[in-house]
Design a protein around this nucleic acid. Sequence first.
DNA 1: AAACAAACCTGTGCGC
DNA 2: TGCGCACAGGTTTGTT
Length: 280
Amino acid sequence: MPELPEVETVRRGLEAQVVGRRIERVEVGRERTVRRTSAEALIDGLTGVTITRFGRRGKYLIGELDSGDRLMIHLRMSGRVLIAAAGTERPPHTHVVLHLAGEPPQEMWFVDPRTFGEVVVFDPNNAAAEMPELAKLGIDPVTDGLTRAELTALLLGRSRQLKPLLLDQHVIAGIGNIYCDETLHLAKLRPDRLSDSLSAREIGRLHRAIHEVLAQAIEAGGSTLADTQYVDIEGQGGWFQLHHRVYDRAGQRCLTCGRADIVRIVTGGRSTCFCPRCQH
DNA sequence: AAACAAACCTGTGCGC
DNA sequence: TGCGCACAGGTTTGTT
């Protein structure tokens, strides 16, 4: 569920509330969440340690530890990170608990019904072996910046449909299904357009749309859909869903032209919504 | 190289 | 009310 804007919102919450606080105790309730290593590895790697800063690349949260190790959290489809007063009743599917020192004592929970998410402590000097996907991530438009020239090279260097290309984390890191559809709509480009068919003018529109959609979504705290699965670390939802113009609106009138209905197709195995009149 | 399908899981919403 | 199916914000792997 969570894409770049949601992960960035979580990152900011962690930076504000978890960084600088010693982790006194660690609980792992479900082995699958720490499957890359083990419960012992996570407990050993985090107990008595302090997170000194929290970064993000694409949808990967990376905490730097004063032990020299790093903490990687990926929310995948249904993961959530929450902070709560120590002793508060935990929601179902709370798989990892970090007990944080300080007044008042708090707990950081990793909650994940579908268990696709991961929590890992790894050694940055051995990242190629322990976290190989990090090195393969493409350019993060927010963390790294994505210039128009870089985007042009990424598009013209191959012939791929725009939708699967923008979703490919090895090319551009952070865009997921919601923001891909919203970006293509704002750029007035069909999701099945081939990347090497774009004019310089169209590339300019796409470049602007990527940055605008992500920036506005971050400002709005991300998108919280009807199931209210995504919330920030304090349990608050975002409000960018109020600005969705195509995502999950198949069959409804286009909010931009008002003269056609949003269409749903499947591209790259993903549900894709667009306006056949606005997007070419 | 690019497009597809399936896999990993659980929960929810819908039609009957 | 209950059942079965389709589908979900992600990513990897294997097959055309």
